[in-house]
Design a protein around this nucleic acid. Structure first.
Lengths: 370, 370
DNA sequence: ATGAAAGCGCTAACAG
DNA sequence: CTGTTAGCGCTTTCAT
């Protein structure tokens, strides 16, 4: 930390200002002088101080991520680590860092955002787990910080969104089950305060509608194992109990599958089960779980990139739509039990490979990252 | 950000310096003046700028955590989210934040530490996943930043450690299996480059020695599901195959249990299995996994606290030992198969509740957090 | 005990 | 185009 901009200026025989311009590639310095300055900087091993830069330019060179989940839930969700790793790949190219906060408890979330903003810790936020009528959107407008939302909020939002089509994954799961002859396909939903909880439910409803089946087997839960288990118990108590359950995430599916088995049901013999997220452990369940593979790492990278572009005013403001997730068919789904014979064409007992979820024509991908 | 220290100084009729002293509770200002200054600051709603503070005092007010795991492994590990949540609880009381980096790929880790240090992003580091002869320890000494290690490194380290006794958990698992009559108790180890991979292996060896059993059924793996599965396959191929396997983490145990079942073995009828970490999903496996419950959240809180104390020179330099983890007995462990009858006293077929791991007398807890 | 003033290292407005 | 200079908001030394 010894060598400063003044040292370089001296060495190059110019003023501090010239060095600053030279370094940042701004006009105001001739090519020759610039070369000389950069040379001097290199020789002295000058590393500009981020702190001083931050003070004078009022920037933090950091992005914020506030996670408002219960730690126990967090721990089971494969989403965040991969998402963060993705963010990192984008940030590391730009000398930005990630400031992570875990806010637990009521009010803690808002306080967290406020504190990071007021202390000038970050230049923008990545908003995950977007909720219905999310209060963070007006909050961030008030705080005057840019942001990127994961999926488009259902309230007015000035922030660009980076979305991954939930609908496609759930639709693929339902279509898969319908093809296997199931007619009573239930859904255990995630928290309906989350837009991804809602959209997955709606996707389930409309996929059933398309198949000409009623969407009357819904049970709300909260993305937790305990909630998934309770919801499953409720569904299996019904006289018209389902032969297949589409869960809004893997954790609930895991708990639901477990519960069904403890009740003496065979999976998939008596009950087919699908999850969502493709958590690593799901392939080692008995039976391995059919689930929807999202790409959280890609999501993180793109979201961070979009936010960085905003900060440098090089973002067009458009939403970004990522490639739709993919259904991974494993052994937790099978033909509907006898007596529920397929109303459609005969189907093979098992799919053996990944099938691509259909792209939804009504969500025009303005941009598609590979 | 409108109101600055000068405004407050004007309002209180003093100089900037006085305001600074008053705010930081330093001597150099009389009680009366201090009161007046604080009053003025409150009225104006003054928030001191962290950036300016950072520049003039050469501090970052942030702690760094560099995670060098493969994102896919990260996603399945319940440790980090809870650990981070724990860190947060300690930091939020002190206006510190967490800068998180995920470094993947060779060399990325060191670059990450260097960059954070050179850019003055953090005032200290939390070192997790400590390795044998860990190169980060000399690195951080070179970078002249304080740190806290999770568990005491096996090389000389000037940094205080916050430890949780691995030995106790594994010992409890082995003792539990021995009590169930098992005599061929294998261990699938985690990466032996990690000190917790090593210590768990050593704990397994010495627990077997104590029981008068040979420790010849060891298979090295790498904490991943795939590795755990391969190691399990290897063990089960042996002619003297084990009747119980102690895994170094839950993910390997899950994969191992799955593999055994695919081979037609009953768990725990033919093979008992124990995990480590108490990942949430383990209670929904079939059968639910007997595992060791660590407390990552507590660990994070204490580690951050110790590091903060170091920064304020109020740390005594002693290591901190947390309460030993606890064995959670669930259905993946049971009596040894017939023909392997218990050499000891008859045992109940199942423990039904948590049993406290014995405290190890040879690791004197210098401090024990509740 | 108090106040003035000199940095911290950089950016950007402003003369030359 | 180039170089000078005044901040950014705080800490801390040094006279008073």
């Amino acid at each position: 930390m010894a060598v400063t901009i003044s040292d370089v200026a001296h060495a190059a025989g110019v003023s501090k200002g010239a060095v600053s311009y030279a370094l940042n590639g701004q006009p105001g310095v001739s090519a020759g002088t610039r070369e000389r300055i950069l040379q001097a900087a290199k020789e002295l091993g000058w590393k500009p101080s981020l702190r001083a830069k931050g003070l004078s330019s009022a920037k933090a060179f950091a992005l914020g991520l506030v996670v408002a989940r219960d730690p126990s839930l967090l721990g089971t969700d494969p989403f965040f680590p991969a998402f963060i790793a993705g963010i990192e790949t984008a940030l590391s190219e730009h000398d930005y860092t990630l400031v992570l906060s875990v806010a637990t408890g009521a009010g803690a979330e808002e306080r967290c955002y406020r504190k990071l903003a007021e202390n000038g810790r970050v230049d923008g936020f990545l908003l995950t787990d977007v909720r219905h009528d999310d209060s963070r959107i007006p909050l961030l407008q008030e705080l005057k910080l840019p942001a990127v939302t994961l999926n488009r909020p259902d309230s007015d939002s000035p922030f660009p969104a980076v979305s991954m089509d939930d609908c496609a994954g759930i639709t693929a799961a339902v279509e898969h089950l319908v093809a296997l002859g199931h007619t009573r396909i239930a859904h255990v939903g995630g928290g309906q305060e989350y837009i991804h909880g809602r959209s997955r439910r709606q996707a389930w409803e409309s996929a059933l509608a398309t198949a000409g089946l009623p969407a009357d087997l819904f049970e709300a839960a909260d993305f937790t194992a305990a909630g998934g288990m309770a919801a499953t118990a409720e569904l299996l108590r019904r006289t018209d109990k389902p032969t297949a359950i589409v869960y809004a995430n893997d954790l609930m599916a895991t708990a639901g599958q477990y519960y069904a088995q403890t009740q003496g049901l065979s999976v998939p013999g008596d009950l087919s089960v699908t999850g969502y997220d493709n958590a690593d452990f799901t392939q080692y369940l008995n039976p391995p779980l059919t689930t929807v593979a999202t790409e959280p790492m890609l999501w993180g990278r793109v979201a961070a990139q979009v936010l960085l572009n905003q900060l440098s005013n090089s973002h067009d403001g458009e939403d970004t739509v990522l490639q739709a997730p993919t259904l991974l068919v494993r052994a937790s789904t099978g033909p509907a039990p006898a007596g529920e014979a397929a109303p459609n064409a005969p189907v093979p007992p098992h799919y053996t490979c990944t099938q691509q979820a259909p792209q939804h024509p009504d969500t025009p991908p303005t941009l598609c990252f590979p």
